[in-house]
Amino acid sequence: MKRDLTQALARWISQGRRQIGEVLFLPTDHGFLVHHHLDSPSADLEPHTDPNAARRIAVADASGEFRPIKTTPNLRRGWLLKLPDITALRTALEALYPAMLGSFLSFERGELPGVHLRETVGRQSGMYAITKKVTDNQALAVIARNCNSEHGCLKAHLWQIDPTTPVSSLPASKTDPSIPQLPGSAPFLPLLCAEACNLLVAKFREEIKKTPYTPPPADAAPTAAPPHP
């Protein structure tokens, strides 16, 4: 069946879904209200009617720091989008949470397979080719630091280290799209991560570069990470 993301969004709304990440979207008689879930639309919020304003809202956190990952739970508060229709709502939500509506639709259609970490790092080249050498332990530590839902990223993982090695450094709920990563969420649209993003791959590179190589004892089997340049 043909993809129609706007129609899918209408269906999700009719199912009662009202939240994505830290954002609430509420149908009204005049369209939709969109705001941070910790704000009340009756509060003194900065109003916008252009759905493209959402991209500028999502650029930086409350302290002005750039947000390269939009699913980091640090979306700033204090704004209100008043949108006329579902097309504008789709534009705004795609700006606040890039590719997340489309990823959920693909997931529903069985078209969003998880890509395990070994495959992701295995195809890297150039300055990231070194990430092929990341050990499971290094990967688990870096993932725990950067992907945790408390401070890192609100997406649910659809991938593992490899087909038989789960990401044991994160709670099991991190891999279940039916569980909200933000406690207390209203009925929600899940944020889905089909594979390690480039920012995480870059963190593996940093980790490998900073870890001094220790050669294994002469009589031991070579199980440690291979040397890196």
Partner: peptide, 16 residues
């Protein structure tokens, strides 16, 4: 984008 979201890997999920 390569270094930002949405990523190249998500491209085909973005459009109908």
């Amino acid at each position: 984008f390569w270094k930002e979201e949405p990523s190249m890997r998500q491209a085909l999920h973005l459009v109908d």
